[in-house]
Design a protein around this nucleic acid. Sequence first.
DNA 1: TGTGAATGTAAGCAACGATTACACGGGTTG
DNA 2: CAACCCGTGTAATCGTTGCTTACATTCACA
Lengths: 236, 236
Amino acid sequence: MRSSAKPPSAKLPAKPRRRTARAPAAKPYHHGDLRRVLIDAALQLVGEGGPDAVSVREAARRAGVSPGAPFRHFPSRDALMNAVAEEAQRRFRAEIEAALAEAPASTPANKPLGRFRCLGLAYLRWAMRNPTHFEIISSRRFFDHDEAAGVSQDNAELIDLTERTLAEAFAQGQLRSADLKQVQIAGRALVYGFARMNIDGHFPRWGVAGADAERTAEAILDLFIEGIAKVPGKSA
Amino acid sequence: MRSSAKPPSAKLPAKPRRRTARAPAAKPYHHGDLRRVLIDAALQLVGEGGPDAVSVREAARRAGVSPGAPFRHFPSRDALMNAVAEEAQRRFRAEIEAALAEAPASTPANKPLGRFRCLGLAYLRWAMRNPTHFEIISSRRFFDHDEAAGVSQDNAELIDLTERTLAEAFAQGQLRSADLKQVQIAGRALVYGFARMNIDGHFPRWGVAGADAERTAEAILDLFIEGIAKVPGKSA
DNA sequence: TGTGAATGTAAGCAACGATTACACGGGTTG
DNA sequence: CAACCCGTGTAATCGTTGCTTACATTCACA
């Protein structure tokens, strides 16, 4: 991976120059906030080549630090990936909630389940535009499964939000089925499936971050909503 | 991985015993059909620990062969994984087509889209019962993307089958929407999403190969079909 | 001002994918 | 029957990886 091309002789010859001089950034022994930088580097690596492209050594390399340094902050590669996935999940949730905050609580009459639709749309948009980041948050293997409850609070919050939105729609008599659990799982499966099909390479025709993907995503989301909505749509 | 515990001295001391004697399986220099055995071993490794658990060396170890031997048959690990994925895909397709062959072409009147349902059900069942194998056929990265057309004939065949089945249902006036492409993608996304959520650990409550998974899968498939079917169901 | 804990480096381990040189032996030829 | 060729296996090796241990440095607090 990336032969780094640095002649080992050019290693700044270790002259013990007084650190208190006016060059404050002259390779201080202690990195400012290595943990943060490592997560960022790993996040970038994920963005470039997916989860498998993340190596502890490469992250250390990009942080300008020795190969063993990361292990002071993360006991294992998995722990690093865990932190990376948590960060991605945080951003994912933040964007979805922001999109939902913009949409008014009042659902337009001719667009039933408006908030649910908005939720799904924000989900799909983020997944389409950040495929590799979505990949690491979708595979739950990157999250800690040791904690009894834990396992990504952000994700549980998102699922809760979906359930509440759906229950809301049902309370307003917009749903055909009363089995909310099933509708919710079906909805999640649809959206999740589309997002994963995209990152798994099932839509080879679409270029990277193609607008086709987002339009199709919107279309099938509407198809699904139409299918679960109470009033049968009178037109296609 | 698996320290193998074999003292290197016990290596059968290379006495050139005449091979034509009555011990035909006395470690012949040439393995019978190594390629086949390697694929099987890798398939087994996938079954045990997912795609990441496959290493060329371990496959070689299980085949009782030196670490370099596999590279006579596969130019790289990716090539081996490719062959493994193709094999899994073949089995997947075979089972689905068998299930479909058992189902009669005549769809029961009160079960519209019967063949489509049968198709989806067979898909989901195989995915639930062979999660790790489904994983390697779902990630298209294990397939050759060099070939212009290729890319797993079995998969293309399966997609064709889905399209034909759906077109058939439409021709019989069973579909609400005329946009078959959308319905097909939505259906694939739903089923694919459910299968992937299962293998990605989104349903932690279900034990391995739990029957819950299959029942829920059936339920959401029916929910979807009800949503796209022309005649609205009169009860939940 | 000193000292311990936090945080970095250096060196090294085993396992991995992959390459190279070499050894074996079955099948086709003369 | 004999000679050879080439497909297939072995052995040794390289560079990279995750991870550990021993040591060095520096920050924060007493």
